[in-house]
Design a protein around this nucleic acid. Sequence first.
DNA 1: TTATTTTTTTAGGTATGCCTAATTTTAGTA
DNA 2: TACTAAAATTAGGCATACCTAAAAAAATAA
Lengths: 227, 227
Amino acid sequence: MLKTSDEKYLRAIYSVSHSENKQKVSLSDLAYYLDLKPPTVLERLHVLQKEKFISYTKTEGVVLTKSGEKEALNVIRKHRVWETFLHKVCKFGWNEVHEMAEQLQNVNSEKLIDRIYTLSGEPKFDPHGDPIPDKSGKLPVSVRRPLLNSIEGCRCLVLGVNEDSAEFLNYLTDLNIGLNEKLSVEKVFGYDGSLKIKYKNSESVILSPKVAEKILVTCTKHGCACK
Amino acid sequence: MLKTSDEKYLRAIYSVSHSENKQKVSLSDLAYYLDLKPPTVLERLHVLQKEKFISYTKTEGVVLTKSGEKEALNVIRKHRVWETFLHKVCKFGWNEVHEMAEQLQNVNSEKLIDRIYTLSGEPKFDPHGDPIPDKSGKLPVSVRRPLLNSIEGCRCLVLGVNEDSAEFLNYLTDLNIGLNEKLSVEKVFGYDGSLKIKYKNSESVILSPKVAEKILVTCTKHGCACK
DNA sequence: TTATTTTTTTAGGTATGCCTAATTTTAGTA
DNA sequence: TACTAAAATTAGGCATACCTAAAAAAATAA
């Protein structure tokens, strides 16, 4: 059986390796993310490596093995299922749930996760818009659609773009919109179909239909009415 | 803030001190209950004493202070609320819930306990028939009634007796029925009002109306139909 | 009342999970 | 290329929460 503390590390490695602009998970990145000192993390990495959950070299950084990734996705599942439950069933605000879920995810009962997931309506995304892996660790396959076809109040996740020109990509970079960015559609202007988008929990911008058409997203709210 | 591990000890002390025939909580009793060795427990008792949660002398054994009892009842509340939730909302069997509740009770959010208690219908007793203390640590005031007035399927708790003769008390002792015993009424014989009672999860006995009249109980199922 | 057993206490010891300080290695820059 | 800054590593330490073995104290029985 996996220790609570191993799970913490595996989840962190997964998160860091999937964050933007990271092609390598360095020791110091990981230590920073975990709010621990590098020697502490290093020591644990050696253990995780012996247990075959990761491989680590100072040049390649930390890489999850197949079994390490599976475990990581399992913790992520537990965490996100709890967050969903706290939000949907217990009616906590989406901003309150993280800390509680952090503790709840350590409770060790697959059956309990199943039950509370059922009680929550089995959505594919948690209250923050992050996808919930299934029991085997698979992430939900998302239906991609242009951001343009959004209705007001829609919350969605950026999965890709429809154009690769440097101009377009630079524009998005300037706006600070990247892959896996979570967007909230504040307003749809009927006149030309422009969209007011809020993201990073504060930034907000109006996108022209030409741009919105090129951004591919997937809705993250269960049963969203977007086409 | 109280540590998880302190809570474990305080709950154990409370439980042992309230178990049958215990007028003193000895170090070895406590160690046995916690499944730890006496030196380990002793060490912690010194700490708890310094924190003013208990007083301990080898002659008096362990005694909770006011504040220690309050903390103990708080953990007990958390534990029993979780058990209730797991049983009523998550539909686990009453025999499955203890272990999960043991872990869940460590999650530190009074607000969460409130929410799941509400979701569970705010009963006064947990699925094992044990009373759930309120936030201030008060145990529910029970309506005492003679066991005789029970309907089939009733589950109740022995609160006392109506007769103090040695004969009667010895009879109960022989049957292994004591204070706080949880009884389940298996059958009511209409002919003379005898009751078939099951308890200690296996023992079962038929009590005459004369005896059943003298045993005072309180129903532990929410909204039980007993008079 | 002494002998025996049980309970309590003391005195070390171990594993875990974190730390700081100092050193080595690597990478970036002048 | 040599210098400097950053990252990785080593070495040693600390607190927690357990343990065993042995001594001291108390309770029980002969």
